[in-house]
Simulated assay, not measured.
Amino acid sequence: MPPVTDEVSREPFRSRRGRAMATVMAGLSLVLFVALAVLVSGVDEGGWVIADRVMLGVIGVALALVLWRWAAIAAVPDDAGLTVQNLVGRRHIRWDEIDDVSFDEGDPWVTLHLTDTETVAVMAIQRADGPSSRSEAQRLAALVAASRH
């Protein structure tokens, strides 16, 4: 397989708005839930017990971790193929396995159609990013096309 040409940028694909939202919300949830755990009324007033307060902190940390995973979503092209890191799971797909790239109206993110009839979501290119998402989908399609030459 010849290497992908340098004419098409091989910068990683990342959602700008999704990543910014997830990062900000992860920080806010951590601060909010930990602050609530510290500030809620104690056992003396018949309110929250220590276990309740600890659980608030645990919920805040868990929520922050899930949002951190959302911020880590990416698709990284290399000479051999595309490494897709979605919310759950990481997968490397060779260029010759990709049959088509689609980003139909109403789709939340790009979909790869593989030669074995499987489809793979590429959450790193999200419609929420506006017009730039369409150009990123075209760039991915150009990388796939360039790999075939």
Rank of each mutant, 00 (worst) to 15 (best):
I59H: 02
T5C: 10
V31G: 10
V24E: 01
R14V: 02
V110I: 09
L143S: 07
G81E: 05
A124Q: 02
W109F: 11
M123W: 07
E11C: 00
E45V: 15
L65C: 06
H149A: 15
V84I: 15
D129V: 08
R91F: 05
R19H: 04
D78R: 04
V54Q: 06
G42M: 02
V122K: 01
S15G: 14
L143D: 07
L87E: 02
E118H: 14
A51M: 07
A72K: 12
L63N: 05
F33P: 07
R139M: 10
Q138P: 08
V122Y: 04
H149C: 11
G60A: 08
V43L: 04
V54R: 09
V61Q: 04
V31D: 07
A145K: 14
E105S: 12
M25L: 11
E11Y: 02
V122T: 01
V54D: 07
A37C: 10
G27D: 09
V34S: 04
F13G: 00
H149F: 12
W95N: 11
S102A: 10
R53I: 02
F103M: 07
L36F: 13
A71H: 00
M123Y: 06
I98L: 02
S135Q: 12
L32S: 13
A146T: 10
V8I: 14
M25N: 04
A80S: 07
A22G: 00
A145C: 09
A64K: 02
M55I: 11
G46R: 04
D79I: 03
V76D: 04
G60K: 06
A71Y: 00
V84N: 08
G47T: 12
G57I: 13
I98H: 01
V88C: 08
Q138R: 15
H92I: 12
Q126E: 13
R94F: 08
A124M: 04
S15H: 03
S29Q: 12
E97C: 08
I59D: 00
P2G: 14
A74S: 13
R16I: 09
S15E: 00
S9L: 03
G27N: 09
P108D: 13
G130Y: 03
D6S: 12
T115R: 14
V40H: 09
L67V: 08
R17T: 13
E105T: 11
G57N: 12
R19Q: 04
A142N: 12
S102P: 04
V66D: 00
A146G: 11
A128D: 09
D116T: 01
R91M: 11
D104I: 14
P2F: 06
D99W: 12
L56A: 11
L65D: 00
L32D: 13
V24I: 09
P2H: 06
L28F: 02
D99S: 15
L30P: 04
R19S: 13
I125A: 06
L39K: 14
V110Y: 07
V66N: 01
V84L: 05
W95R: 05
S133K: 00
R19K: 06
L36V: 15
R14L: 05
V61H: 07
L32A: 15
R94T: 13
V110P: 05
R17F: 12
M25P: 06
R134S: 12
Q138I: 14
V66F: 05
P108R: 15
A51K: 13
